[in-house]
C-alpha cells in the first residue's frame, strides 16, 4: 500500500497553514513527518484523517483518492486524553466501535491489546486512577485495536519509561512487519532515525526536505572523514585548520575534494595508529536543524 499526499493546500482564515505539501509513505515501512512546532504537522495529519478537507490537492491511496470507508486509520494524538471518569473497557470499546468494529469484536480486540500491553488488570478501572504513563498505554490501544492499515503516532515515546519505550518499539516493529504504514511525528530524532526509512521535513507549511533517509544522507558531499585514533591530539595538531574534535572522541577532517578521500585515508593509516575511518554522514538532528531551523531557509538557497 502506498499513501500519498499531493500538493495539499490549507488556510485558516487569512493564514496559509499548508502550501503544496506532498509526501509519500509505503506499506511495511515507517515514515517520519518532522517539523518544528506550528510547521503544519497536525494539520497535515488531520487532512490525512479527513477531519477537515484540504483547500487543494489530494490524498491518494495506491494511486486513487483514498476511500475512508475501506482504509482504516489509527491515530495516537500528541495531546493525549480520553474520558477520565469512564471505565477503561467501556471507552476503548466505544472508540473501536466508532471505527466500525462490531461490539463483540471490539471487546475481544481491546482485551487482546490490554493483555499485550500488560494492562488487563486495569480493564474495569476508571482512567483517572492510572498513572500518566499507563494512561498513555491505554490510549495506544485506541490507535491499534481496530487493526488499521495506516497507523499515525504523534510523539508516541514522550512520557514513557525505558521499559515501556522498549515495549512500544517492539509493537511498532511488529506493525511495520505486518506491512502497515506507520507514520511517525516526533521531535525525538533518535527514534525516527531508528525506525523511519523515509522522512519529510515541514517548515512554515511547506516540505523543505523529503525522501529516503539513507539517500538524503548520501546526498551530502562526502568530503569529510570521521577518524578515530589513539593519537587524537597529534592528528588535531598536524591537521590544524581542517580538523576539529567530535563529541564522540573522534576527529572530523575536512578534505579539499571528495575525490581525495582514498589518498587521505591511505596516508592516515600509514602515519597514525588508526582505530577506524569512515566518511562522515550527518545525523538526522543535524539535518533537521539545518533545514527546519531559522537558518534553514538560507541553507536551502545555497
Amino acid at each position: 500500500m502506498v499513501l500519498e499526499l499531493r500538493s495539499i493546500e490549507k488556510s485558516f482564515g487569512e493564514k496559509r497553514v499548508l502550501e503544496g505539501v506532498s509526501f509519500r509513505a509505503e506499506g511495511g515501512k515507517a515514515f517520519g513527518l518532522l517539523g518544528r512546532n506550528g510547521a503544519g504537522k497536525t494539520t497535515s495529519i488531520r487532512i490525512l484523517m479527513d477531519v477537515f478537507p484540504a483547500d487543494g490537492g489530494e490524498v491518494l491511496c495506491d494511486g486513487a483518492p483514498i476511500d475512508y470507508a475501506r482504509v482504516q486509520l489509527g491515530y495516537l494524538p500528541e495531546e493525549r486524553g480520553m474520558y477520565p471518569k469512564k471505565l477503561i473497557i467501556d471507552q476503548l470499546t466505544y472508540f473501536a466501535e466508532l471505527k466500525g468494529m462490531p461490539r463483540r469484536e471490539a471487546v475481544r480486540a481491546v482485551d487482546k491489546w490490554l493483555e499485550r500491553l500488560g494492562m488487563s488488570e486495569y480493564r474495569n478501572k476508571r482512567l483517572d486512577t492510572l498513572s500518566k504513563g499507563n494512561q498513555q498505554k491505554i490510549q495506544l490501544v485506541t490507535a491499534l485495536a481496530h487493526e488499521p492499515q495506516i497507523v499515525i503516532l504523534d510523539e508516541p515515546f514522550s512520557g514513557l519509561d525505558p521499559v515501556n519505550a522498549m515495549l512500544l518499539k517492539d509493537i511498532v516493529r511488529e506493525q511495520i512487519s505486518q506491512g502497515k504504514i506507520v507514520l511517525f511525528s516526533s521531535h525525538q530524532m533518535n527514534y525516527i532515525e531508528e525506525f523511519c526509512d523515509s522522512i519529510a521535513i515541514l517548515k512554515d507549511g511547506r516540505v523543505v526536505l523529503d525522501g529516503d533517509l539513507h539517500d538524503i544522507k548520501r546526498k551530502y558531499r562526502r568530503d569529510r572523514l570521521a577518524v578515530h585514533t589513539e593519537e587524537r591530539e597529534r592528528l588535531l595538531r598536524d591537521m590544524a585548520g581542517r580538523a576539529e574534535p567530535m563529541a564522540d572522541g573522534g576527529v572530523l577532517l575536512r578534505l579539499d575534494a571528495a575525490e581525495d578521500k582514498r589518498a587521505v585515508m591511505q596516508r592516515l593509516t600509514e602515519s597514525y595508529d588508526i582505530d577506524g575511518i569512515q566518511v562522515f554522514e550527518p545525523s538526522l538532528s543535524d539535518i533537521f536543524v539545518e533545514h527546519a531551523g531559522d537558518a534553514g531557509e538560507t541553507e536551502e538557497q545555497k
Binding site: L73, E79, G81, M82, F95, L98
Partner: peptide
C-alpha cells in the same frame, strides 16, 4: 468536557 479532556482529539478522528 470532551474538549478539555482532549477526548475530542480522538473523537474527531474517529467519527
Amino acid at each position: 468536557a470532551e474538549k478539555s479532556s482532549r477526548a475530542m482529539e480522538m473523537l474527531v478522528t474517529s467519527a
